[in-house]
Design a protein around this nucleic acid. Structure first.
Lengths: 331, 331
DNA sequence: CTGTTAGCGCATTCAC
DNA sequence: GTGAATGCGCTAACAG
């Protein structure tokens, strides 16, 4: 491998001058600069980013650490990547496969230090585990869960969004609304918060939040959702489904089709997330709730850049408002 | 930050002994090992992976460099990430936003050297540009394009898959089949190869490959696909659509719905990729072609591990066979 | 079993 | 405008 010293020797200058040329520092004479440039390209020299990082402490990379690459997080990654482009930084996405031990490792100080900053989305860790995290670089939490600690935190309005979704189903005539992907425990995690929104909306409308209509899921996949809703449909009749994610809603639509129920005539469906692909779901787009387009990545980047600029700034907790995207799975 | 020397000093040993403990090397006495372990945890020490990389030349990370995170590549990333888990390696995904300059930078020796190996999916670079790539670590090309060079290369059978898709539409009665996302030029890139499969299938069946039925796309998004197919439907009638990706097919289904055409009665649709979510598309899953489940990531990892084991092994070009997944968008 | 020496490739500091 | 010295934190090779 060709190093900076090799270039320096070939150009008849010191390594430091090569470094100055590469980093565009001013105090190098034009002839020297040109000479060095030539040698660099002749030798095909490229900086060793690892050595630079060790020495200068900068990587120009930002990490996005999430439970999986597909669906919601993939879209988020694409948005963030394009937003980082102008500043010359790179987004690298890392998946924890939604496993607690993989999360702990990916969130470790050692791994975080590989980047200039990180967005981390916690799936399995408890609030206490997150509070114990040692973050050697600026970190913004993209959280479903409520995180009682000193990190910057961007959170979707889970309860509000779920309430909005459920209310719109009620307004459009639903009376028996299942929550697909409801809570399997009492923790304030994503399923529980979205279920809370469902419960509150029902109760405010004078309807009862029937526990029999809470359908917990393990993986929140379309396939699992389809199967679980199918079992519900075998034992009782419903006229609305609030799916806790758009991916889950996709499975719900499939189950309803199998059961020969018409959407939105017999059963109305509302999702959560507003995925790009949801606009193209049958029969003319999935009704769903979500933040304004690109609002979440924009705010996330603002939080991170603020933290990078001032490591001592007080931690901010920002809640992203949700709005309705009424499409064809509701009347 | 606490370094290895800090730990060594506090434990009354040399840095080398700390290193030996951390890396689980055998020749450390049990009492010393225990002592060092205690100090490490007391001080909250964590290895500096950058320094380790500089010194030892190993990162335990594999890069997956792709045009975007969403859809097909997101699914691929999830598969590869779980396959790498057992060997203790981590997948990091990097997006080039499908831009040529971003691709050149992401594929640069400097960036590749940050990892123990890389899977790279070329979107914009020409074969000559790829041939000039300087790869300082093992690299496997995941390519649509035919790449005439010395790198290991895993390629979908684009022509064969497209032919299979088109043949199945013909067998099921289609006579006027549009290729949505066809070629906009004469290069052997993904759209051109899939269009070739379409052309060959038609001609083998004694049908003509009408250029008017070739619908080029720029971004291969559902939205663009929907708009472009809508214009086609305004000017002529068709009874089949071969969409060059499942994402494009989703847009096609939406356009057909808007035009009040029934799928599969009036128009049949076949995609390409077999995305997870395609199984849940209306009306009972999208008919599509794709490799066997996880065959592509499995073969890709085999190629990479072979290359890691033997840098001098001859380059392999592997073509992944395609099969039909007949679902409800065809009769 | 443990310690010493040396250096990975770069950039900060300061001298010329 | 340019160069020499120094060290970021770690580990390979060897000495004891």
């Amino acid at each position: 491998m060709v190093t900076m010293s090799d270039v320096a020797r070939a150009a008849g200058v010191s390594p430091m001058t090569v470094s100055n040329v590469i980093n565009g520092r001013p105090n190098v004479g034009e002839p020297t600069r040109a000479k060095v440039r030539r040698v660099i390209s002749d030798l095909g020299y490229q900086v060793n980013l690892t050595a630079r990082h060790l020495r200068a402490g900068r990587t120009d990379s930002i990490a996005l650490i999430v439970p999986n690459f597909n669906g919601y997080f993939g879209e988020l990654g694409d948005s963030l990547a394009s937003m980082l482009q102008p500043s010359g930084r790179h987004l690298v996405m890392v998946s924890t496969s939604a496993q607690v031990d993989a999360e702990l490792e990916a969130f470790s100080a050692a791994r975080l230090r590989m980047h200039d900053g990180a967005f981390i989305s916690v799936a399995g860790l408890s609030a206490e585990q997150v509070a114990r995290l040692d973050c050697p670089v600026p970190v913004v939490l993209l959280g479903e869960r409520t995180m009682p600690n000193a990190l910057d935190h961007l959170q979707l309005d889970n309860v509000g969004g779920a309430k909005l979704a459920t209310q719109s189903l009620i307004e459009r005539g639903c009376r028996t609304i299942a929550v697909l992907g409801g809570a399997s425990n009492r923790e304030w995690d994503m399923p529980f918060m979205r279920q809370e929104g469902w419960r509150i909306a029902l109760e405010e409308a004078g309807l009862s939040a029937d526990p029999d209509l809470i359908v917990p899921l393990q993986h929140f996949s379309s396939e699992e959702a389809m199967g679980e809703l199918a079992s519900v449909l075998e034992r009782r009749s419903i006229d609305g489904v609030f799916a806790v994610t758009d991916t889950v809603a996709l499975g719900a639509l499939a189950a309803l089709r199998e059961a020969r129920l018409s959407v939105p005539a017999d059963v109305q469906v509302c999702g959560f997330d507003n995925l790009e692909s949801s606009r193209f779901a049958y029969p003319g787009g999935l009704t769903t709730v979500g933040p304004l387009h690109d609002e979440l990545p924009r705010l996330a980047l603002e939080l991170l850049d603020r933290r990078i600029a001032d490591a001592e700034a007080p931690a901010q907790h920002v809640v992203v408002g949700m709005r309705m995207y009424a499409r064809a799975t509701t009347r």
